[in-house]
Design a protein around this nucleic acid. Sequence first.
DNA 1: GCCGTTTTCGGCCCGACTGTTTTCAGTCG
Length: 620
Amino acid sequence: MSTNAEIAGRLGQIAELLELTGADKFRVLANQKAARVIESLTAELGPIARGPDARTGLMALEGIGPKIADKIIELCATGRIKELEELKAAVPAGLPEVMSIPGMGPKTVRLVWQEAGVTDLAGLKRIIDDGSILNLPRMGAKAVEKLKASIAMLAESRGRLGLGVAMPVAERVVALMKDVKGVEQAAFAGSLRRGKESIGDIDILVAAKGAAVTAAAEAFCTMPGVRHVIARGEAKCSVRVSLEEDGGRFSGAPTGDAGEAANAAPTDAERAGGTVQVDLRVIEPARWGSALMYFTGSKEHNVRLRQRALDRGLTLNEYGLFPEDKSTSESPQSRGVKAVASKTEEEIFKALELPWVPPELREDRGELKLESTPVLIEVADIRAELHSHTTASDGTMSIEELAERAKARGFHTIAVTDHSKSQGIANGLSAARLEAHIEAIHAARAKVKGITILAGSEVDIFADGSLDYEDKLLAKLDLVVASPHAALSQDPERATERLLKAIAHPRVHILSHPTGRLVLRRRGLEPDMAKVFAAAKEHGVALEINAHWMRLDLRDTHVHAALEAGCVLAINCDVHSPGDFDNLRFGVLTGRRGGLTKERCVNCWAAEELRAWIKGKGHG
DNA sequence: GCCGTTTTCGGCCCGACTGTTTTCAGTCG
């Protein structure tokens, strides 16, 4: 049994070790690319690799040729890859960690390994402490000081940040940069603009000229919260900024989500040592579009765009799209060549004969084949919240307050879905309490006008796929949201059966946070998602993107696959307290990354359409 | 190690910053 994650992991290891042996960099690149491709697949490769046409089947995937196909087949058949074993034998096990130190690339690691016998982090520290590292070529006092600082930083900054932690920091910095005199534009770019679920660092882009350039760099490096200036140049600065994180119910707040805070790992801020790296680039206003594109990435998307430019006799960089001139190696911008396009992203895409591509789709997952700009879902399209909790279980609001808050957001419908009886720690409702709660919801309906309040429940899906209430009781509800909360490390086969059984239940409307994963913290279930999607399509069950930034479950690649399978989706905030409504944008970003449109999201439907779907499903 | 509407071999994106250097190698994004 080899999951895609395992296959990708092994290939990534091969790439890393190859780098350390000084192998051809394109061979390294090929393994990295294959790992990346496999990681974002939703269909499992295992069955293909064990099937009759394994080699052909695998080679149909981009980036996988005969050699890598054979490695995958070998792994699935024997549980190991000979090449990897050999590399592991040849490269000391501690070196990959040494290479993870900022400033230590493959060349330098090789140098300290071969010339000074360093085989792990302790060895590196040793030659730094005894000063012998200075005897190596290109190793001066300053380089060693930086290395020391990097090692110290590494201990406290390993790990990435959740979207919800990074976004407020980025927004604060952008607002600050916009206030600098002479700054014409400021925005965050990078993986944050693409809406990725986790962020390594924050990229800030500023358009300015003349005195404003240095003013921007100065303001950036001295802004509140800067703990350390890593680099400071005219056009580029890097700093580490203090973090404040509120993980809400996932970080030990009193309103624990079914006790999940109790076994949760340290918060992002804690793991990151309380800081995040923020990079600033200052560019001329006339080059805003090309710079924004460049720094938004993804890297793979950019490579693809550059290739496309070259195919058209053009060359693309962060300064613009230029005519290619093979007679010189000097860059077009330094020769004063006029750009074909540079001011806006739109004009550059147009010059490359492409529609503008929304940032969330720029992952080299086929977005350059789009014939027009897709109209993806937006926060303003959402008209209903279908997953929320009140004081009856572990929420902080009464039914009336919840409904008023939802109404204030412009929603036409709110579903009250408190926890079911087995969620004892979340004060889950017994059958009798649920009966009474349904009555209370009906009473609130009469009080709060201008919004439909649905009586629902977030019903636990047990490990065997059965539900936490009797069918007779479920039949009294307007809406049933079914979720896995416990037994989240069961094997993929059982997880698949579990979810399929829940989906097939005639009373279930929405499968909520289907895998139970927590971003950067917990893997959650790893069922055969293709089967889950096929079943959801068959039974008309909506698959939820839980909008809390620590869940984002379904994840982006699942969203894409679910849409391909013909499913409808839901984006719910899983509201426990008033602020949770604000997480909607993270769910929407994730939906957009998967190509979600408002037509395919039940929360965007008009009241009558939504009601008809709920009713039809309920009697189905 | 992958890939091919000019290729089954010879390509494979591009620039800033840093530190150690006198013209550049390495790292990073």
